[in-house]
Amino acid sequence: MTIASIGLDAGSTTVKAVAINPEGQIAARVIENTKPDISSQAERLIEGLRSETGSGPDTTVSATGYGRKMVRNAGKVITEITAHGRGAFFLAGKALTLVDVGGQDSKVIRIAASGNVEDFAMNDKCAAGTGRFLEVILHRLEIGYDQVEPMLDRASGSVSISNTCTVFAESEIISLLARGVPVEEIVYAVHAAFAERVGSLVMRLGRPSAIHMSGGGARNAGLVKLLGKHLCVPATVLPEAQFVGALGAALTAASTRAGI
């Protein structure tokens, strides 16, 4: 297998790495929960990809993600924004608005027809607009991602929660449960609140004609649908949704080597 480069996305919840061929296709991928020692974890994952694809030690590596600076022997290091912009543009092949829902942050990136990042927005420090928020709540209700969509379809949407602050929301949910409100209504309310929060982030860059989604949150099909509905635009999940950042990093590494 000819490998052009390796990209590694050291996120706060998971670490993703891909090896790409000269056409930019992903030849091998790996994903793991983030370990406390990111440096050695990254090293191990890169080594793993190298042996899997049979590529030599001189394959260039680029890193991104919140732990990007901990990755030793990475050539170019870029932020998640640039990496996701690149990866998403490669996958979509056109101008797009990307919504990436990650563990610790959500980001919206507007990518021009040239492939340039035109503008971006990230949620502030608070957990309300992040994947973590949904995770905490779903965990509390003992519900898996795959159960969400049918529940949302069933719900009437008659209940809403006013707070997207994780702490407040939890106490609101407890009192809803205590009042005997059906679980699907609560799940709906939580997702609606989340969609509103992320929707605001999208709207800060101006209303798009469509959105593409990536990151761990894109695996929640119910959320994708609801977000599209909330914004009144079609919402599509990018292929390789969890590897968009890693792919962008790999593409950067490849182009750096090619001198582009």
Partner: peptide
Amino acid sequence: DPRSYSPEQ
């Protein structure tokens, strides 16, 4: 702004 008030609390 009702988002800054938790009626339950």
